[in-house]
Write a protein that binds this DNA or RNA. Sequence first.
DNA 1: CATGAATGAGTATTCATTCAT
DNA 2: GATGAATGAATACTCATTCAT
Lengths: 193, 193, 193, 193
Amino acid sequence: MEPIAEKKKAIFESTLELVRENGFHGTPMSMVAKHAGVAAGTIYHYFESKDKLICELFCYVQKQVISVVERENCQTIPFRECFFNLWFGLYGFYHTNPNVLKFFEQFVNSPFNAGRPSLEHDTFHQLLFSFFERGIAEGHLKQVSPKILGILAHSNIVSTAKIVASGRLAFEEAEIEQIPQILWDGMKAPNIT
Amino acid sequence: MEPIAEKKKAIFESTLELVRENGFHGTPMSMVAKHAGVAAGTIYHYFESKDKLICELFCYVQKQVISVVERENCQTIPFRECFFNLWFGLYGFYHTNPNVLKFFEQFVNSPFNAGRPSLEHDTFHQLLFSFFERGIAEGHLKQVSPKILGILAHSNIVSTAKIVASGRLAFEEAEIEQIPQILWDGMKAPNIT
Amino acid sequence: MEPIAEKKKAIFESTLELVRENGFHGTPMSMVAKHAGVAAGTIYHYFESKDKLICELFCYVQKQVISVVERENCQTIPFRECFFNLWFGLYGFYHTNPNVLKFFEQFVNSPFNAGRPSLEHDTFHQLLFSFFERGIAEGHLKQVSPKILGILAHSNIVSTAKIVASGRLAFEEAEIEQIPQILWDGMKAPNIT
Amino acid sequence: MEPIAEKKKAIFESTLELVRENGFHGTPMSMVAKHAGVAAGTIYHYFESKDKLICELFCYVQKQVISVVERENCQTIPFRECFFNLWFGLYGFYHTNPNVLKFFEQFVNSPFNAGRPSLEHDTFHQLLFSFFERGIAEGHLKQVSPKILGILAHSNIVSTAKIVASGRLAFEEAEIEQIPQILWDGMKAPNIT
DNA sequence: CATGAATGAGTATTCATTCAT
DNA sequence: GATGAATGAATACTCATTCAT
């Protein structure tokens, strides 16, 4: 896998930042070009259109999220510990990369997201689902569709990161740590601690 | 409270539907006008700009959500039952009004949402937070910030409704019913059933 | 001649004031309506269009100017005195009615002025020209076309009033009084004082 | 001083001509674009808005007028001769460039002219005023504020050019030549010819 | 007479995209 | 590859005018 061209990366990062601040519509190609230090036309060497740029950026960013999941999802570690690692791993990633978080949320709720494959066929969700399958199979979790558990867990992480990032609700560190606990208590099989 | 003018309502409803399908940017005023059966200029009698239209629509729609919360949040009913009523009430509302759900999500993640008041000062969240305060005070829930519980519960409802509405994951009715149970189990105080 | 209807006059005066501040284009009918305290539709009872309103206003205002000329242009008074009376009469009128001055200037230089009759057939200029005809006939003025003298005198008055009104050049009262003297010295026949 | 870009000049000239015929408001950007042979968007590469275009055009045109004054205002030529050169120089310029004359008059009386510097700080008027200062200092002119003389002289030239251009008063060449003479006779010191 | 909601053609401006250099 | 001037379709918004009440 060849490393991403210097300029291509600059375009990605600029778009990410600008979309966070201004939204898709508030981010003209000319603005991306200027911020990335390239000419407007240059963007069209790397991306055939603005839509394509946005979609490729989504994939680029999703790969980062996937690598977080892959890092934390370790079969040799006890499931409970793994669950918390995953929660904090993803939360930490979104917390450290608020641009990504904001871009993701905008993308998911935009018409861009229309043509995407069903969740079953998307690597990120496959990983997520299989993680919860393990938990169920090993008897740690309730007998509930792993897909449901995956969605709930991820939305829980995302909404925590969003609310912290928005700064519209003051939180203490300690309070945040209670959140994955709540999630675990809700999902865990009755006989598990 | 005077009833909303006929045309104003038509504009609201058209916007809601069109924004769902096309997003903010994909919904020109001319399209709203045509769909609502009014002239383009007429919209500007009721709303001073597109931005204002969007923001007022948000308020209009949020009032509907608030009325759902008010309906279900009944002090005389045992808290546990009330919790499930609230969950299903909101879920049902979003499920029946997918336009609202989609509009909300787009709005919340858009630059429009910038100038809004902090969550503490918004009626919907106040109601939500006070509901969970009651649960904590009565000893049904864990000793966790009611704000956190409110946000988690609402994001749980929204993501459930979203995933069902997206049709990108097949669900059975019965599976959905497990979700508020998971949430309850996670939030409830240790000694409560 | 019936007196002008109450509302018609209010519309005239509002237009005069608003056009002075904002120009023709910057003065929508709705703004005139509001300022005059009438409904937008009402204006169309009195004037068939905005263009007509502007043109009628020009006539309305020109009558005021004409009455100034008629007042000062007195055959029984010596010409020289009459000349200075006329100069100060018109200057005083424009100075006291800066709205009129500004409106006039805008009108004269606008496309509205296109369809107007040649100066020979316009009452104001007829009066002006005949005043200077007298001065020439009586031997007070140079043997120059009275039309030229009329135009020069009026433009002299107008530019004096404009520069004072603009406030962009500080003047003392005494300085202004020198101006008609300059004009008189320029126009008077060589042997006249 | 780099030469003005080809297209920028075409836009200037087109605007000048069209504004003369139709006024500011009657001259949409699309019309300017078509007349200048460029796309509508191109105008916005050179001028950030219609207002800016108008204001820059004013400066562009004023420079032409200034160069006429500079050409005629020659210290080595006797003042009286210089005066007539200046009068005919400016008159000739306005007569040959009726677009400029009309544009100027419209501009000066429009709201655009609001934010302009006081006359003392505008190059054109500075030149004009210093010309008359010389005349006073050398004893050719009456002891009157040079600013007043400058304004009167210029308005005299402009109104002559306007009335000729309007075609609403028939003139013979010889009659026009009497006008600067009238002006000179009015301004000159008593003992001067 | 008076109103003001409604109309819709018209306008300034933006911005994704192209292409000659 | 890289540039950025040029394009022109698309869009928010204005405002003169109409007409049902």
